[in-house]
Design a binder for these strands. Sequence first.
DNA 1: TGCTACCTGAGAATTATTATCATTCATAAA
DNA 2: TTTATGAATGATAATAATTCTCAGGTAGCA
Lengths: 165, 165
Amino acid sequence: MQMVTDACRADYNAARLAEFAERCHRDGLAVTPQRLAIIRALLASADHPRAEAVYNAVRREHPHISLATVHRTLETLCRIGEARKVTALHDSARYDGNTAPHHHVVCIGCRRIRDIEIPGVERLLDGRNELGEFRLIGCALEVHALCAQCQRRRNHRRQKIKGNN
Amino acid sequence: MQMVTDACRADYNAARLAEFAERCHRDGLAVTPQRLAIIRALLASADHPRAEAVYNAVRREHPHISLATVHRTLETLCRIGEARKVTALHDSARYDGNTAPHHHVVCIGCRRIRDIEIPGVERLLDGRNELGEFRLIGCALEVHALCAQCQRRRNHRRQKIKGNN
DNA sequence: TGCTACCTGAGAATTATTATCATTCATAAA
DNA sequence: TTTATGAATGATAATAATTCTCAGGTAGCA
Ligand SMILES: [Mn+2]
Ligand SMILES: [Mn+2]
Ligand SMILES: [Zn+2]
Ligand SMILES: [Zn+2]
């Protein structure tokens, strides 16, 4: 287990930026100055910013950009796989009365959550209680999945799209 | 790895409910009908409800309860360790331009997030792409920690509290 | 049986996010 | 290069989740 340093991201970021226009075209998206500025700001920051933080960064070059555009664009970037969210469960607080150690499987379609037990997860951190400047407390594994219902839904949608061709 | 069944929670819930009043007293909290109803509803549901869902459940017995009380109480339960949140990062969406596989360490004080690489996490799911009704897609490990700054802050606060005795 | 500090309900305020719509612009065809 | 067109943007309203405020209520204790 080790921290990912800023240094090793420089090349990665340059490569990602170089590919960006091509990827937008592949997905049928226009390469707008706003989108370029937002992906640049996102790649440049190692701190997993919120929309507001990206907005503040981008505004230095594009003082007229709208916060709504930043929200929209970040969602678009996630949809085409150029960005992701740190957790799939940010939309509202989910509470758990089970305080015993366990982990969760989350349906990325409908946000259904179920408990799972996974032996060995704690062991991943074992022996360490520090990492860089951080004092470690515990960990939670979020297993991403599709529930039966959302699997069906996606299949139906795919078939509809096929039919429209 | 296995799903946690409803059945094996029945005893656990009864035990937790029995201890509840004692634990409130220990923490200097009053045992109000609202708090009892909320912990009961939370323990009874295996689906990691949002505040709204707890509100709807509790309202059947306490039609006059306020949604604000539900929010407040769920937060209180987390503070005294009688409940927890599924993720510490629900308050606003956090975006990540790094699409390579990696995990995160999260400061539970200030929500600072850093990338970490942990070999072997994917292996926890290996061999399986189904679990119960869920089709597995991937996973994300959220390592909880305190950053240097928040460690200092907590120490200062503890000293202040000591001084007030 | 009171006292008192803590708790609750009601509703306002705040914050994050999404929706609406008129205007602008990136793209590709002519 | 010009033009046509559908997609993208900015401004702002709307919605949703959560927190705040404060007057009145009540649990816990003497
Ligand atoms: Mn759980
Ligand atoms: Mn990351
Ligand atoms: Zn689902
Ligand atoms: Zn911190």
